[in-house]
Design a protein around this nucleic acid. Structure first.
Lengths: 331, 331
DNA sequence: TTGTATGCGTTATCAG
DNA sequence: CTGATAACGCATACAA
């Protein structure tokens, strides 16, 4: 392939001049800029990324770390949004992206992980969907060896930012909407939570408790552990003794709703997430629409900011309430 | 980071010896091997990939090129399977993967694309879901600049392989099963095809025609263009004058099935693909289960083979007939 | 404003 | 069997 040397020869200047033109260094005459650009165009020159990385020690390479669980529809959808958002944004920001799954690194120590990232010239890491405390990842964050952005896990330090949704508020809002839309004399509300030790669980529950105090309904809380099947079983169990089912995730909401349909009883159900799969659940449900793709793009921009030397911070992203309609979705 | 130089010093040998040990060169004494490995372990040495690439001109880097259409559930699912299969297999094969979308390169010429891949030290490219003829990709294949594997597009040359399903046979089988399961006096069968100019369309239609000759039913063919919405409209139009609906993709099958449910009429429907979303369509359907993830892993292995200097070839992968059940799925 | 020289961490070719 | 040494393509401190 054509190298910077060829360009230098073609333009009649030195290698370093070409390099400077490419990097938009300040003091270069318009004339030589012209010459160099002409040569670049003529030779179809594109800089060799590996050489640039080796020489400059900076790669602009970021790793996406995903908690893959293929076969779970809702999860696939979210992961895909994350990946798409990150890759598209990275392409704009001139960053290089590689995608990894937790499963690929689960038998590595923190040390091995760090070495691996260095060997790959990785400068930044975006961690998605870390549901709960994880020793290796925590140590990685603590090590401060890389710029990191945690999407959906509340961890921050000088070189780590997080993208976070106001869980309590969102849960409060969607539940309130669902309950007040279906006002009755004395409501019995069932709340199905995620895993007990997950980051979001306590906050979302707090949102529910606040609402319960405010509206005074009878609240039953059960743990669905993020499982569609478990939510289904819980819903069946309570099908006849509650009026409304609030779920901490869309996935569980779908499980609950399909259970009610099978049991031939109707109660309003609401979810949390805003995945398209909701439109296939059979009946409409309220949900909190999280902007997975946008959040992922934001994470990439944030990595860019950290790479510039800025400090880590907590970024609260917006959400909104929606009710997904099948016919709208397939348009 | 610790470099090969540090290892050499620690082990008391030269740099080139270390390199040879790492590469498993033949004539190295067991003794020095021991020393070197000990030093490597002690220093936690991991070779720098960028330097190795620069020096050896070989990167083991392959690009995945996907036709992303987020928001389409079934597509997201397939894409995710492709990505997961490729990345996991690449990790085993010691290959490096980057993911790209057609949308990111749609305004590039073939030349620019080639330059881009070179600048990124990419040696192999896997193209997924190229539905129809595409000028730039075809030129890329023709150029023979890279090793390529086409998943679901029948293109082959010396350095290009393809992974292909026997479309006609699969379509024939699933339609036959669906029709014979629901035997009636004189069936009226509706077949909803994909885009007219898509690679798979003609073959799948051929499978249907063969079956029609064999069983002698009345066949109506309409073009659904891979669109869930269009399939829905077609299904509504024919809801009362056909007995069975065969669709060229799962996506359209879901559209058709949900239409029938809304119209409150029941006819058997079958799809093609085997996406999990089928389980959410409301009623069970037969479908051809394509092993997207396995096929993607196979594509990576095939790229590895091509990288070894082997010739391109056409690989026919297996499929099987299934009927996805919601309760099985969420287990 | 431009050019020279050195180094980044490997691989690979030769000598020894 | 082992060790110098020259690339690889680029960035950058320093000279001019």
């Amino acid at each position: 392939m054509t190298s910077i040397k060829d360009v230098a020869k073609e333009a009649g200047v030195s290698i370093s001049t070409v390099s400077k033109v490419l990097k938009n260094y300040p003091r270069i005459s318009e004339d030589t800029k012209k010459k160099v650009h002409k040569a670049i165009k003529k030779l179809h020159y594109v800089p060799n990324a590996a050489a640039a990385t080796l020489s400059s020690k900076r790669s602009g390479r970021v790793a996406l770390l995903l908690n893959l669980r293929t076969g779970r529809q809702a999860i696939d959808e979210i992961d895909m949004q994350y990946i798409a958002g990150a890759i598209e944004e990275a392409s704009k920001e001139k960053l290089d992206v590689i995608t990894l799954f937790f499963s690929m690194i689960e038998d590595m120590s923190t040390r091995e992980l760090i070495d691996y990232f260095y060997s790959q010239s990785i400068e930044g890491i975006i961690v998605y969907g870390l549901e709960k405390e994880n020793e290796v990842i925590s140590a990685l964050v603590e090590s401060r060896e890389f710029k990191m952005v945690m999407v959906d896990a509340p961890m921050v330090n000088e070189c780590t930012s997080c993208i976070w949704v106001d869980q309590a508020k969102a849960q409060y809002e969607v539940a309130k909407k669902t309950i007040t839309e279906n006002l009755g004399p004395k409501e019995q509300v069932l709340y199905i939570t995620g895993d007990e030790d997950a980051f979001v669980t306590k906050e979302r529950l707090a949102g529910m408790m606040k609402l319960q105090k405010e509206l005074g309904f009878v609240l039953t809380v059960e743990c669905g552990g993020f499982s569609e099947l478990k939510a289904r079983e819980i819903a069946i169990k309570h099908a006849r003794d509650v009026d409304i089912i609030v779920c901490a995730t869309d996935c569980m909401a779908i499980g609950a709703m399909k259970a009610l349909i099978d049991e031939d009883v109707f109660h309003p159900v609401c979810g949390f997430g805003g995945v398209a799969l909701m439109a296939y659940a059979g009946k409409q449900m309220n949900t909190v629409s999280i902007h997975f793709k946008d959040n992922s793009a934001e994470a990439v921009r944030e990595i860019g900011r950290l790479l510039q030397g800025e400090e880590g911070r907590k970024i609260i992203t917006s959400h909104n309430l929606t009710k997904l309609q099948y016919l709208d979705l397939i348009k």
